[in-house]
């Protein structure tokens, strides 16, 4: 993406949020998607925490890659460097929020440590570099992808609560299998967006 105007940014957003939804078409971030989707409040909390960390880590990893790894010809260390950045960023954000914005910390606190092992965060940082995005594109792609994650986990949590309250699920399918099949149906729904040409 070279020029930025409302049209290109909107197309970028629709692509990242709906067409290439990170959970339902690329299978990244499945652990939190299944793990913390038992009710819609926690799902939204997780989504917001992921959005926050993804935005921040895309900025920091872009900087580290372009200013440290490329000049030193150490590009092959990107995996090690990025996971360390994300892990320490999560820790730092947790400490900063606890001290500065206790209200936000109370809302997001318990989800923050879980994000280190969310492969969507590391995945999106690596894909941004692979696609050769510039700074603004990396940031936008991370934010929109995270919004896509939030949307998916939020819809999924609502379907799941409803299903568990009202449906008589066969014994073998109780718990995880029925969640996977629900996700499959949701993924079918998102496949419909494939027809959009932008």
């Amino acid at each position: 993406m070279q020029e930025y105007n409302i049209g290109t940014i909107l197309a970028f957003a629709i692509n990242a949020i709906l067409i290439e939804n990170i959970v339902l078409t690329q299978f990244m971030g499945c652990c939190p998607f299944f793990g913390v989707s038992k009710n819609s409040d926690t799902a939204l909390g997780m989504g917001m925490a992921v959005t926050f960390i993804m935005g921040l880590s895309s900025i920091v990893t872009y900087g580290i890659y372009q200013l440290v790894l490329v000049p030193l010809k150490l590009e092959y260390l990107e995996t090690i460097a990025f996971i360390l950045v994300i892990a320490s960023l999560v820790q730092l954000v947790e400490m900063a929020l606890k001290k500065l914005v206790p209200a936000l910390y109370n809302a997001l606190g318990i989800y923050l440590p879980l994000i280190t092992t969310n492969c969507a965060v590391l995945g999106i940082c690596l894909t941004n570099i692979q696609n050769g995005y510039d700074f603004l594109s990396s940031f936008l792609s991370s934010i929109f992808t995270a919004i896509g994650f939030t949307l998916a986990i939020w819809i999924f949590s609502i379907v799941r609560t409803r299903m568990e309250e009202t449906c008589d699920i066969p014994k073998a399918f109780q718990g995880f299998p029925i969640a996977l099949i629900t996700a499959a149906l949701l993924s079918f729904g998102f496949m419909g967006f494939n027809g959009l040409t932008l």
Binding site: T25, P170, A172, F176, P177, I178, L180, A184, S187, M191
Partner: peptide, 21 residues
């Protein structure tokens, strides 16, 4: 397709749970 991945894993885990039960 991606959706089929969720579907197949769901059925395989259901089979595993059935055997355990």
């Amino acid at each position: 397709l991606p959706a089929g991945g969720f579907l197949a894993l769901g059925f395989v885990i259901a089979a595993a749970q059935h055997l355990i039960n």
